[in-house]
Amino acid sequence: MAKMFLQSNVLYTITAGMEGWELFRNSLLPMLSGAIQYTIPLTLISFAGGLLLALLTAMMRLAKSRFIQLPAVVYVSAIRGTPLLVQLFIIFYGLPNIGLNIDPFPSAAIAFILNVGAYASEIIRASVLSIPKGQWEAAYTIGMSRGTALRRIILPQSARVSVPPLSNTFISLVKDTSLASLVLVTELFRKAQEIAARTYDFLLLYVEAALIYWVICFLLSLVQTVIERRLDRYVAK
């Protein structure tokens, strides 16, 4: 019995080896188009929107007034304290119950923007706090207001500190966009699922999807290195 099972597996592998390569090639195009049409735009839109939201949230958390801090604290706590998948389902499947119907792609974008906004705001806040107090004082003594000091002196320096952790957030985001497949966005992973549903070649197709994610993330980490080098030019080595 065991021998027979083994044989059938070997047989499967051999046929899969020949037909598998063809399937791999045939499915590459739909998966890449899913990546280019949805995964990458969703990542870029969510990251850009998320960064703006994060900057705003970080500034609110750094404000002196408790009333300004509070909404930011609650927002960050709520987003970090609940699963991304649940947030996504609330927006796409939940909100229609109160008459708010949002299409798959915008639903996913909203969920990811809210997510990046919360996580990145903590990164930005920590990077601002890491700049020595003397930099604020020097900015004040040349006559700058708090806002100008932040914009001209503090944020440019904290940008350098926050690039590595923000790159982490960005790369996580690329991979998290696969969750959008569950709210019907036909992105990379959804394409893989659709093809696998017809051919039953789950292993091959999901490994193929994984490889494409890996390549995208690898290219992004190269971009990170370039940005870090640029920002490092004024730092003593």
């Binding site: 020595p132 003397g134 930099q135 004082e137 020097a138 900015a139 003594t141 040349i142 006559g143 700058m144 100008t148 001209r152 002196i153 440019p156 320096q157 350098r160 004024y234 730092v235």
Partner: peptide, 27 residues
């Protein structure tokens, strides 16, 4: 008034010239 600090507190992301013109130009 203008202050000179014990630990200089120059702006590390700006060149020497940019450090000196920052106050006059921006403020």
């Amino acid at each position: 008034s203008a202050m000179v600090f014990q630990s200089y507190n120059l702006f590390p992301h700006k060149t020497v010239l940019e450090n000196v013109i920052e106050g006059p130009v921006i403020v």
